[in-house]
Design a protein around this nucleic acid. Sequence first.
DNA 1: TTGTACGCGTTATCAA
DNA 2: TTGATAACGCGTACAA
Lengths: 343, 343
Amino acid sequence: MPVTIKDIAKAAGVSHTTVSRALRGNPAISNTTTARIERLAQDMGYVPSAVAQSLHAQQTLTIGMVVTTIADPFIVKVVEGVESVAQAAGYSVFLSTSNNDPDRELAVVETFRRRRVDAIIVTSSRVGRLHSSQLNQVQVPIVLINNQGEGKYLYSVAIDDEQGAGLAVTHLLGLRHRRIAYIGVPDRPKSNQRRLAGFLAALERAGIAPDPGLTCSPEAGDDFQRGQAAFEAIEAARASAVFAYNDVIAIGLMAACAQHGVAVPGRLSVVGFDDIEAAVYVNPGLTTVHQPRLKLGQLAMTMTLDLLNGRKTQDQKLACELRDRASTAKISDLPPSLIVNKP
Amino acid sequence: MPVTIKDIAKAAGVSHTTVSRALRGNPAISNTTTARIERLAQDMGYVPSAVAQSLHAQQTLTIGMVVTTIADPFIVKVVEGVESVAQAAGYSVFLSTSNNDPDRELAVVETFRRRRVDAIIVTSSRVGRLHSSQLNQVQVPIVLINNQGEGKYLYSVAIDDEQGAGLAVTHLLGLRHRRIAYIGVPDRPKSNQRRLAGFLAALERAGIAPDPGLTCSPEAGDDFQRGQAAFEAIEAARASAVFAYNDVIAIGLMAACAQHGVAVPGRLSVVGFDDIEAAVYVNPGLTTVHQPRLKLGQLAMTMTLDLLNGRKTQDQKLACELRDRASTAKISDLPPSLIVNKP
DNA sequence: TTGTACGCGTTATCAA
DNA sequence: TTGATAACGCGTACAA
């Protein structure tokens, strides 16, 4: 049982009220007793109970963060951004994973409600389900990362997927590529759709008609395997360049290329999305669209603090930047047929 | 202001005591009123306050987790393991980063004390500092991951570094390598020392005398850069194989090799430690010592639960496994001088 | 300058 | 079967 102000009060021969005031630096208490009490508190190893304080103050100075899985290198950085800003502002953060399971996500939110968190931050959820049921019952601000939602307490900060995809395609167009493929994913429909839209829009601006054969969305297991699985479709489509939904997919594709003797970027240029750590580890280094993930997390928490302090806020969108590394090159002047065939 | 049992009591025309009992399924309350109250609670959107419950029960069902940085791919998995077991057991986890700053680490532990967490889990800290000052003041169990410490409330779960290093070296010896180098790190002294010890012990078992020229510990920036920086020393030492402190260093070294035209594994075999995701992404796939990181986290939390429930526990050590991929090969029969020179 | 009394939301003890 | 009342640790209005 930790030391309480009552214990200190007894030891000091005063009321617990006096102790409370002294420790909070209330000027009404005489300097001498204040000093004495402070010393006593120190000696007795007193640490105030945030639980009791929370009950009294009707706020816990905690926020709940829901992530699908922390294993995603993208999410990790976001969490780090959130946590650092939170910590600096005196907030603690509960981290919970949902594994992309809507039921668990609801359970997690329910737990956060029980714990009386002051706000909730959610990354990459399928808010559809969440929204419908009890999200509107939640009486605290909810900040969505990379996801929109509509509701009284719903706010969002997001990456500009379309702009990012445009960056990738523009880069490839600048390298004279014309047959550019897109590898999408089936399980993040919203962002996938936005990246696809950005991809198509950029092509259209360049006067290139969309070719359905140039977009695919492999079903295989994890993202890396999806990238590998996409290899055949890319070959069949005779693409000279590929824009992948994310880096892991791009890296999986590059692995398949290496296996089949297709040189990157000699025969095929590859652009990813995210700029995860591994993008600089692989060979060749992966050209990719950098997401300001840390900043995204920081912004989400900053916005949360604004909300908590009654300041005005509005939804934010963050721009991406291109990281030009070694997996892209100017298209060779050989005819496409020669370029895409095996050696 | 959320709904309380008093609100429900008023609406139901009973005392709040009855409501409390009804909602907890106390058999003393008649079925009819129980049903009526449950319905009311549901309709009014009642969610019990974990804060008030914690104050009363003198336990919060929360645990605090301190990590140096969540950005470390090793730590991420550990966190995931901890969180999944915690969540299943009804515990919530506070996650805080210390950035390897002893002061911040102390501040974080202090915050956890204020929040009255039931236990604390710490990964990869330099417990020296922590231990000395106020760690002994903490009245809750502390589980250290990959770190020993001595004290009343201190427990630990760890990877068997020596065994893991032995695995790596034995593998290389089996491939006929004799001049095997070790790349260490200056900033994780404990585990570095243990891996070095395992490295040397395995060599000794094979009757190979240690050669100081074959171990180095680059000071450069991050681990990747350290791996790159180690290249020259490895060349100078005329090693045919390298065991690196971790995967990122190994990958950095491989990048430098690619740059200088040194074939891996043709000229140099490389073994890492950790088995991070990127180990399968790089080309060639990195042979490495797999740490059961998820299991490590799960074990840490399981042990914490045991401690909390008064069960007996003892410090645990987890064995590693070798993941044999493509960065190691049998040494060629050319004389060493030919092997290590540039093409 | 200090103390008394009450409330925050919940559970438990005791009495009816 | 139900209800008053106290307690958990803290902060504060009101009194002295």
